[in-house]
Design a protein around this nucleic acid. Structure first.
Lengths: 129, 129
DNA sequence: TTGACACAATTACAAATGTACTTAATACTC
DNA sequence: GAGTATTAAGTACATTTGTAATTGTGTCAA
């Protein structure tokens, strides 16, 4: 179990922006989010505050403004989130999700090739006992 | 956009049980859920009612008791759910999720082979223009 | 026919979530 | 230094979610 409260869907979205920006104040996050979505500045403020309260972000004061940066590694958050989804939607089996993705998200030829490479690499580093 | 309100994490879990049972009354769903999770009978009742209200389940009356069955196909719900996650967590790119799954969920040799097959099959039925 | 249960239906209610307004403090601009 | 913009901080508030208690009603067994 994660030692932190989970994130809601929208919170995840905001967290992702911070991951991309590495270190950002409210305005920067607000602007990034505004690209794709109609949202109020103070709403972003609230999200960032909650993300900090929940232990996902660090805050640093620079002058009068607060800069947020990841505290938990994206990879970790992604793992927890995806695991949770797999648990609830597929009873813990990851394969059906893979299958779903492969079948429903029409990948390009290049992407398929990329995938194949990934799998090949896996087989090399196989840690089955 | 889905024409129905989205499902919460727990609602998804309950929906999945109904999918598996195909057609079930509260008790059956309650019993299936109890296997893995401590939950009250009436809580299950509430979830099922909400799932129906949201348009995900059909209800049929058999004697005095209500039998629930899927109204929206699992595949559809899964697509909507996964798409939403991919959107928020990976900005709409499915590949990073695949990559994550392949790297983080140690698949067995058999599963890897299965995956490979899946990909091969894909290439045959390639519908790029 | 009377409990004891089963199930439906209704209601409850705190916590989490999405969304924003308000107020206060500062900084920047003439 | 008065007015304007920026940010922080606090507060608000309806909706959704998770969880269940309560109340009504029929069913079955003794």
């Amino acid at each position: 179990m994660p030692p932190r409260p989970g994130l809601s869907k929208s919170e995840l979205e905001v967290a992702r922006v911070v991951w991309m920006l590495k270190d950002a104040n409210v305005r920067a996050v607000y602007e990034a989010l505004s690209e794709t979505r109609d949202i109020d500045f103070t709403t972003v403020q609230t999200y960032l505050r909650r993300l900090e309260e929940k232990g996902y972000l660090n805050v640093r004061l620079d002058g009068r403004s607060r800069f947020y940066s990841p505290k938990v590694r994206p990879r970790t958050v992604i793992r927890e989130t995806v695991d949770d989804l797999v648990e609830r939607l597929f009873g813990g089996e990851a394969m059906p999700l893979m299958k779903h993705l492969v079948e429903e998200r029409s990948f390009s030829v290049e992407e398929i090739e990329q995938l194949r490479q990934l799998i090949n690499r896996l087989e090399g580093a196989d840690d089955e006992q």
